[in-house]
Write a protein that binds this DNA or RNA. Structure first.
Length: 278
DNA sequence: CACGTCACCTGCGTGC
DNA sequence: TGCACGCAGGTGACGT
């Protein structure tokens, strides 16, 4: 499911409240229930459950598509992959434990009865507990919205690659945070064909791509992400897609039907006129 | 190194 | 109605 804007939306809600109304920052963990052990990537299940109780959530940050809950002595990292989500719940006042929802995989319990549920229908999501978050996120590429990330950096990295634009932009070690939606939208906004060789881009085209990537991510965040199908809650960027899942519909700029192709086993949507190959 | 293929999973929409 | 099939926001492990 979630790409950078969806993850950022969740991080902000966990920090300040929002979405579910309840922040987890400042709360102290009392324990964790693991209903699908494979959701825990590292350490072992036993160690994971042992190290959690007593740790307080200092703050919640994001690196690429990873959610990072910074605890008293560890970092709790969550990757939602395709269908994961985090849900904060307050105790209902009855004194009874809150019921689980379908596909709840891991439930964190806080002092005072509040909970944080990791829900993941497809079971692809993973959770890590690490002293140093870098051991998990260390190989990620630059943050596209980092003020220090300049268009010249993108240009240099594009020219260091022998790959096509689409698979390259999806590679998290190249740039952290883009997924299938925002890659297609960014390439459209930049007027670049998804199968262009990254090396072939001019400085001007690289700068356009840099601007486009940042603009679509910012717009996604502004709209609280995209909610598609049954998975994500709250965002409305899906109502503003210009190419993603719009196969056959007219391009908003030129009216040409949007086309769909496969690149690297991922469906790719583009306007054949606004995004020429040449 | 770049690329293709499969694996991991469940649920939903479509069409027969 | 039932069922097969294709498709889905992601990544990691392989083999070539």
């Amino acid at each position: 499911m979630p790409e950078l804007p969806e993850v950022e939306t969740i991080v902000r809600a966990l920090s300040r409240g929002g979405r579910d109304g309840l922040p987890v920052v400042g709360q102290t963990l009392t324990g964790v229930r693991v209903l699908w052990p494979r959701s825990i990537a590292s350490p072992s299940l036993g160690e994971f459950m042992e190290r959690i109780p007593g740790q307080k959530v200092k703050d919640v940050t994001r690196r690429g598509k990873f959610i990072c809950l910074n605890l008293s002595s560890d970092a709790l990292l969550v990757h939602l992959r395709m269908s994961g989500d985090l849900r904060v719940e307050a105790p209902d006042g009855s004194g009874q434990p809150l019921p689980l929802k379908p596909h709840d995989r891991v439930v964190f319990e806080f002092e005072g009865g509040q909970r944080l549920a990791f829900n993941d229908a497809r079971k692809f999501g993973r959770i890590w507990l690490a002293q140093d978050p870098q051991t998990v996120t260390g190989s990620l590429g630059p943050e596209p919205l980092d003020p220090a990330f300049a268009w010249e950096d993108l240009y240099r990295r594009l020219h260091a690659s022998g790959r096509q634009l689409k698979p390259l932009l999806l590679d998290q070690t190249f740039l952290a945070g883009l997924g299938n939606i925002y890659t297609d939208e960014a390439l459209f906004a930049a007027g670049l064909h998804p199968s262009l060789a990254a090396k072939a881009l001019s400085e001007e085209q690289a700068e356009r791509l840099w601007t486009a990537i940042r603009a679509v991510l910012q717009e996604g965040i502004l709209r609280n992400g995209a909610s598609i199908d049954w998975v994500y809650r709250g965002g409305n960027f899906q109502n503003h897609f210009r190419v993603y899942r719009r196969t056959g519909l007219p391009c908003a700029v030129c009216g040409t039907p949007i086309q769909r192709m496969e690149i690297g086993q991922r469906s790719t949507h583009y306007c054949p006129v606004c995004q020429p190959k040449g």
